[in-house]
Structure formats: structure tokens, C-alpha cells
Design a protein around this nucleic acid. Structure first.
Lengths: 188, 188
DNA sequence: GCACTAAACGGAGACTGTCCCCGCTTAATT
DNA sequence: AATTAAGCGGGGACAGTCTCCGTTTAGTGC
């Protein structure tokens, strides 16, 4: 489904360099980091960057897929080790923290959560939705979460809480507080 | 505190034209609308625009002050005609709807809500915080809202809910739903 | 090894947007 | 009518995005 031919060696090299540099650049300058600058820092021409990643979104996604997959995997891990309610609380906390910590990931997760989003972010969106679905269903089955909630609602609201927490610049404790408040509203 | 001299007639004329055009442009193209284009549409040079409004934020604020003041005023209106709890619900609904409806206002309100924000947005921030404080205090006094909430928390969370609702493109009913969920978490 | 070819490169350049600067214009004042 | 400073406005430097196309090079068959 991906490539018929394997990538040429130089192409693969550049691809990975770009990814590494991009992650640094986004972390440093936020999601608005200059793409030409990223290309330059990776020692390639801008043409090369745009060939590999046609849009900023595409690069953003590629740079953070692993991080997002890790968050999704974490959901399952928590789901196995904690009772459903606590697993959900903890996951939402980590999700929000991650969203804020990695500057630029917010825009990415936002579009991953949006329905009918760009094809580029589908992979991420699917992982997150899958992870959310499992935790949400478990919590609902255990009777600790309202039954009228869809997983997508939970993801959207988490995104909202992350945004809200971000407005309280520098106060790290606020995330847990706001997640806590949100969850009281979502309890069964 | 504002001007020692009154503004020259042509200056005032341009100022108001810019404001009007800017509101249209932001509504049409979102908060990223081209400033030079706004200047052109208003029939002035870009220098004139930048003299009146040194930053995008400044223009954004000026274009929407009246709208924000209206929202703040609405808080008092609701506070007088409805019981505290319902007033708060209704106000948050209108606030979120307004935030989403007027594209570009989100960024503005965001910085108005942020502590230690730019001087430019202080006026808006003050109105909103004042309005929020009155509604929140009343609701707390009536025992329908948790006592450990600051008005700024409520504003931040409202902003978060607006963001969350926005992710559900096109579904207008979702705002009330999400505001409702939030408020269940904030109840005393 | 060598020649061949398609994949990949890269940077010039067109375009758009931001923002400042400074010579010119004009409203207000006497 | 003369004066003057507030205000004007567009030219231009700069930064970013994205494309096009001539050049280079990895991989392959002989």
C-alpha cells in the first residue's frame, strides 16, 4: 500500500534527516517554523522537502506519528493495569500534557480529531480514535462514564481542556485540575 | 489618557473605515486576513493602517471591542433576569457561540484570557473578567457553582469548550451539549 | 566494471504577506 | 494666506511558501 519499490538510499537518508530536524524545529519555534529553514538545516534543498512532505500538515504528522502512536499505546497499557475510571483519568492527563508540551502537536491533533479531515492525518486519527474507543467503552461498561458519550466527544473535549490549560501559561498543575473538572461532568 | 488633541478629521475617517473593512475581512478570511489587503480595500496605504494599529492583535481587538463589550454587557443582563445558575449557563453558551461564529475572535479572546497578556488587549480582558466575576460570584453565592473556581478558570474553560465545539464542524447543537457537560463538572 | 535510466536532488525565482521609512499632502490654526 | 505638524501612502526590504526544471546519482542489466 505504501511503495511498490523500496526508497532509494539517498532518498531514505534525506527523509529521515528531515524528520529529525523538523521535530527539533517545531519544538523550538512552534508549528509555524520556517519550512525552508528546516530544509536548510537538514542540508537539502527546499524542493526535496516539499517532495517528501507536500504540506506542513504532512511534515507535522510525520514528525510526531511516533509520539502519537505512543500515546495511543499508552491508552491500552493504562487500560490493562488500572480500573477503567482511573485509566481514563490518567490517559486524559497524559494526552493533554503531551498536546501542550510538544508545541505544534496541538494543530495536528486538532485536525486528527476533526471528522472528514485531510487524508494525510487519517492514520493518526485512527489510532487515537481506536485508543479512545477502548477506554471509553470500558469506562462506560464499568458504569463510571455517561453512556451518551462518543469517543470523539471525549477527544474533542480533551483537546479543549488542553487549550484551556495552555492559557494558564506556566502553571503545570492546572492540567490535572481542569481534567478533573471535566471528568466530574462526564461521570455516569 | 488617550489623546491630548482630538484626532484630525481625515485620521478619524480613515480609522473608522479601516475598522469597518477589517471586521468584514476577518469575518471572511479568518484572523489571518491580509493586512495590506485590508488597507487597500479601505482605500488607504498600508502605512496608515500600521500607524493606527501597530499589530494584527491591535486591529483585531479594535474591530471586535464592541462585540466583546456586548458579550460582557449581556452577562449583566442575564444576571439580572435569570437565576444565577441559569444565567451562567446561558452566558457561557452565548460566549462560546460568539467565539466560534466570529472567526478571528478566538485568538483575541484567548489572549484576553491569558494572564499578563499584551497591554493592547487589557481593555477587553478587563471587561470579560469583570463580567465573569459577577456571574461566577452570584452562582457561587447561590450554591450552584463550586466555590474553588476563579472567574479566570471559567473563562479559560469556556474557551476550551469553544475550541472543542469547533472541531465538530457544522454541528451547531454541539456547543450546548459541551457547555452542559462542562457545567455538570462545575456544579457545587 | 560500465553504460543506462529513472529517481531524486537542489536552488533559482515567482509570488504573497508583513512592516518600516520618509518625502509629500493637507487640516487646523493665526 | 501663511504656517506647521499630523497624517498620508506607496515603494521597498525582508521573510516565507511552493514550483519548476536542469543536473546529479543510485541502482540495474550486461
Amino acid at each position: 500500500m505504501t511503495q511498490v519499490r523500496p526508497m532509494r538510499a539517498d532518498a531514505r537518508r534525506n527523509y529521515e534527516r528531515l524528520l529529525k530536524v523538523a521535530a527539533e524545529a517545531f519544538a523550538e519555534h512552534g508549528e509555524g517554523a520556517s519550512l525552508d529553514d528546516i530544509a536548510k538545516r537538514a542540508g537539502v534543498g527546499s524542493g526535496t522537502l516539499y517532495r517528501h512532505f507536500p504540506t506542513r500538515q504532512a511534515l507535522l504528522e510525520a514528525a510526531y506519528v511516533d509520539r502519537i502512536e505512543a500515546l495511543a499505546a499508552r491508552a491500552d497499557e493504562l487500560g490493562e493495569t488500572l480500573p477503567p475510571g482511573e485509566a481514563l483519568v490518567e490517559w486524559l492527563n497524559e494526552l493533554c500534557a503531551g498536546t501542550i508540551e510538544v508545541r505544534g502537536m496541538k494543530a495536528l491533533l486538532g485536525s486528527a480529531v476533526t471528522d472528514g479531515s485531510v487524508a494525510a492525518v487519517t492514520a493518526c486519527g485512527t489510532s487515537m480514535k481506536g485508543a479512545a474507543t477502548r477506554l471509553v467503552s470500558a469506562a462506560q461498561a464499568a458504569g463510571v462514564l455517561r453512556g451518551d458519550l462518543e469517543p470523539i466527544d471525549v477527544l474533542r473535549l480533551a483537546h479543549g481542556v488542553a487549550t484551556a490549560s495552555e492559557l494558564a501559561k506556566g502553571d503545570g498543575t492546572v492540567i490535572r485540575r481542569y481534567v478533573g473538572l471535566l471528568l466530574e461532568g462526564l461521570e455516569a
